[in-house]
Simulated scan of single mutants.
Amino acid sequence: MDTPRPAQMGRGPILSVSGLRVVFQGARGRVTAVDGLDLDVSHGEIFAVVGESGSGKSTVALAVAGLLPASASVSGEIRIKDLDVRRMPPRERRRMAGEEAGLVCQDALSSLNPCTTVGFQIAETLMVHRGMRRREAMEEAVRLLKLTGVPAPAERAQDYPHQFSGGMRQRALIAIALALQPSLLIADEPTTALDATIKAQILDLLLRLRGELGMSIVIITHDMGVVARLADSVLVMYAGRAVEVGTAEEVFARPAHPYTRALLEAVPRLGRGAEPLHPIPGAPPSLQALPPGCAFHPRCASVVTACSQTVPPLVELGHSHRAACIRLSQEANL
């Protein structure tokens, strides 16, 4: 959180999401994966969307990139620069997904094609979108592998994904996402299943790319340690809704929602000694059967009767800090 910020940060949002609602129609009925989400990401900003599995984080990433399946019903507004993503025809949306918003998907091994070399998978993007000849595109692929820290990039470009380590595969996915020089990089759980050393290297890479290329980054994660290392701003999601949003400094120093506090209390810290961790009791609710009122109230240590009766709105706590808790709403009305 104390890393240098690009000079262009603060020019206004490169990504603006307003009232985003994503509903899937399945065999068992309708599932609302994202419910009324708002967020703004400035130029050069690293914006973290954090929460447990099933909170709707990845659905937000796919919605922004225009890659949701046909079974998804989407409402609200998504704008990247001056582009209205939702109103784009499919052809333009596919172009935008690479040229304006690059997506680094979860699970690098399954996201890469096992039947073609890593270098060709990067080059293919350039041949399709930029009309490059294969030789020129392969040279650019080698440059991108070098940019993302892959050693001996000319040789490794000829390797297949199974010949890469987990960390190298993650770098290759980032290279593919960077191929068309997008203004916005969306990284969905980029450090999952990586050991601590490799995870630190990937986080350092993202910080370096932000500094060198001036791009904005949206990072989707459940790891509060990753948020503390990278993020300028944080949005905490639970059961498809935003429960807290603010700068990383505000959220870590003064967490206002019980869920945010619970996430932070569950993180191991140096200096705690033998002090036990405090896991969040229970499990996230099914999106097909959300509890009434605040969805977190069955697991909340600060629950009151009103929590099961009303869905709390986001309450302003400062210039950019907001949280959705009935206790905050009651205090605001006193």
Results as ranks from 00 to 15, higher is better:
Asp204Pro: 04
Ala332Arg: 15
Met224Asp: 04
Ala27Arg: 15
Leu83Ala: 12
Gly149Asp: 00
Gly36Tyr: 13
Arg241Thr: 08
His297Leu: 11
Gly166Lys: 11
Thr305Ser: 15
Asp38Val: 06
Pro89Met: 06
Glu155Lys: 12
Gly51Asn: 03
Cys325Gly: 03
Arg208Gln: 12
Ala248Gly: 10
Pro279Ile: 15
Gln158Phe: 07
Arg94Leu: 13
Phe24Ala: 01
Leu67Lys: 05
Gly119Glu: 01
Ile46Met: 11
Ala283Thr: 10
Leu109Ile: 14
Pro153Asn: 01
Asp159Leu: 12
Gly131Leu: 09
Pro13Tyr: 00
Gln121Trp: 00
Ser58Lys: 01
Pro153Ile: 02
Ala72Cys: 01
His321Asn: 08
Ala123Arg: 03
Glu331Asp: 07
Pro4Gly: 10
Gln181Glu: 15
Ser42Phe: 06
Glu52Ser: 10
Leu145Gln: 13
Ala97Met: 06
Pro69Arg: 08
Glu139Val: 11
Arg322Ile: 01
Asp38Phe: 13
Thr148Lys: 04
Pro13Gln: 00
Arg134Ala: 14
Ser286Lys: 05
Pro298Ser: 13
Pro281Ile: 06
Val315Glu: 12
Pro281Cys: 07
Arg254Asp: 15
Arg241Gly: 03
Ala7His: 12
Leu264Thr: 09
Pro153Thr: 00
Gly19Phe: 00
Arg93His: 07
His129Asn: 06
Tyr238Met: 08
Leu144Asp: 02
Glu331Trp: 00
Thr117Leu: 01
Cys307Asn: 11
Pro151Glu: 09
Leu185Ser: 06
Cys115Pro: 00
Leu213Gly: 07
Gly225Tyr: 05
Leu145Met: 15
Glu189Arg: 12
Ile280Tyr: 09
Ala187Gln: 14
Thr310Ala: 15
Phe296Ile: 04
Thr125Trp: 03
Ile202Arg: 05
Arg327Ala: 06
Leu112Ser: 09
Ala61Glu: 02
Glu140Leu: 06
